[in-house]
Simulated assay, not measured.
Amino acid sequence: MINKPNLSKSIILSTSAKLFRAQSFAQVSMRDIAKALNVKASSLYNHISSKDEILEELIFELVDTFMSKINETLHKTIDTKSKLEDIIQTHINIAVHKPNQFATLNNDWKYLKPNKKGNFQNQRQNYEQILKSIIVKGVDNQEIKNSNPEIILYLMLSSLRTLHLWYEKKDIDTQTFKNEIPKLILEGIIK
Rank of each mutant, 00 (worst) to 15 (best):
V136A: 03
N93D: 12
Q123H: 12
K113Q: 15
Y167P: 00
I2R: 15
K83F: 01
P114F: 10
N141P: 00
S158F: 10
Q27S: 14
T73S: 02
L58E: 08
K9M: 14
D173I: 10
K170Y: 10
I59N: 00
L62Q: 09
L160E: 01
D64L: 05
L62D: 08
H164F: 15
K18Y: 07
P114I: 10
F60N: 05
N119R: 14
H75G: 03
I59Q: 03
V39H: 03
N107A: 07
R21Q: 14
L184R: 12
S16P: 02
N71Y: 08
N106M: 14
Q125K: 14
N106T: 09
L153P: 06
K183L: 13
I189W: 08
T80D: 00
N122A: 11
T15G: 04
I130P: 00
T174L: 06
Q89Y: 03
E53Q: 14
S16D: 05
D32Q: 07
D171P: 00
N141K: 15
H91I: 00
P149A: 11
K116I: 05
I172H: 03
N93K: 06
P114L: 08
I94N: 00
K170N: 13
L112A: 07
M1Y: 13
K113P: 00
M30D: 07
R161N: 15
D86N: 13
E61L: 09
D52R: 06
Y111G: 02
I11Q: 10
I48H: 05
I70C: 01
V63Q: 04
